[in-house]
C-alpha cells in the first residue's frame, strides 16, 4: 500500500546529542583505509586550520541514519522496514564534523513516491552542533521494494 502523502514535510524531534570522539574518528578512518593524519593527529588538523581532528566525509551517516530510524519505524507512516534498501545518499557539509562536536539531528520527510509498486522515501537530516550551527545536511533515499517487483 502506498505511503500517505500527508507525511511529506513532517519533521521529527531532534535527537539527543551525539558526542564525536577522537578515537571514534580514528577507528572509522582506519576502517575505510584512510590514513590522512588530519583524522588522527590534532597538530596535523590544526595545520590545516581545524581546531581538532576532523571526521571523514561519510562518518556522519551513522548519526544521521540512526536519527532516520524514528521515521523508518514510525508506526503511523507504516513503512515495510524488512523490504527497505538504501537507494541514494548525499551529504552537504557546511563544515567538517570534528572531535568534540555534540551533534543533534532533525529528520524531515522531504518526499514520498510510489514507483512500480516500490515506496520511495526521501529523508533529510539536518545535523546541528551545540551552538545551533548547521554542520551537515544528509539526504537519504530509502526504497521499500514491492512484494512482486523483487
Amino acid at each position: 500500500m502506498a505511503l500517505d502523502q500527508a507525511f511529506v514535510g513532517r519533521s521529527y524531534p531532534p535527537t539527543d546529542p551525539y558526542e564525536v570522539g577522537r578515537e571514534k574518528i580514528r577507528e572509522f578512518a582506519e576502517s575505510i583505509g584512510e590514513d590522512n593524519p588530519v583524522h588522527t593527529d590534532r597538530e596535523a588538523a590544526r595545520a590545516l586550520g581545524y581546531p581538532d581532528v576532523i571526521a571523514p566525509p561519510t562518518f556522519v551517516f551513522a548519526i544521521s541514519f540512526s536519527a532516520a530510524q524514528d521515521v523508518v519505524h514510525d508506526p503511523q507512516l507504516g513503512l515495510d522496514y524488512d523490504r527497505v534498501v538504501h537507494g541514494d545518499q548525499r551529504f552537504v557539509h557546511h563544515r567538517p564534523v570534528r572531535a568534540g562536536d555534540r551533534l543533534t539531528v532533525t529528520s524531515t520527510i522531504e518526499a514520498i513516491k510510489s514507483l512500480a509498486g516500490n515506496d520511495i522515501l526521501d529523508i533529510r537530516g539536518d545535523v546541528h552542533d551545540e551552538s545551533g550551527e548547521l554542520v551537515v545536511t544528509a539526504f537519504t533515499k530509502l526504497v521499500s521494494r514491492s512484494l512482486e517487483g523483487s
Binding site: 584512510e34 590522512n36 588530519v38 583524522h39 590545516l48 581545524y50 576532523i54 571523514p56 566525509p57 561519510t58 534498501v85 538504501h86 537507494g87 541514494d88 545518499q89 548525499r90 551529504f91 552537504v92 557539509h93 563544515r95 567538517p96 539526504f139
Partner: peptide
C-alpha cells in the same frame, strides 16, 4: 584535505 569535499552524493 578531506574537509575540502563539501558535497558528495551517490546512488547505490
Amino acid at each position: 584535505d578531506p574537509g575540502a569535499l563539501i558535497d558528495y552524493g551517490v546512488r547505490f
